[in-house]
């Protein structure tokens, strides 16, 4: 089993990820965005539903 150690030494190397970084990071960022938008819209809906109850 290969060791699980930090693969990248500089931030810049981690971002680039051997020129695949753009794809990897963009997917994760978009997923994070979609998750937060989804949960925020529903808590917002929940809140204004509670007000007029």
């Amino acid at each position: 089993m290969e060791k699980i150690i930090l693969q990248f030494h500089t931030l810049e190397e981690a971002l680039l990820m051997g020129d695949h970084g753009i794809y990897v990071w963009s997917t994760y960022i978009i997923t994070g965005l979609v998750f937060s938008i989804f949960s925020i819209t529903f808590s917002w809906k929940l809140r204004n539903l509670k007000e007029d109850e």
């Binding site: 290969e2 060791k3 699980i4 150690i5 930090l6 693969q7 990248f8 981690a14 990820m17 051997g18 695949h20 970084g21 794809y23 990897v24 997917t27 994760y28 997923t31």
Partner: peptide, 25 residues
């Protein structure tokens, strides 16, 4: 899971780093 997968997991011989999307897909 994501942090370990993104930063700590070893590089894939064939696909390089782009395989790291597997932890999401």
């Amino acid at each position: 899971g994501w942090i370990v997968g993104l930063l700590f997991a070893p590089i894939d011989a064939v696909q390089g780093h782009s395989y790291r999307i597997i932890y999401l897909h």
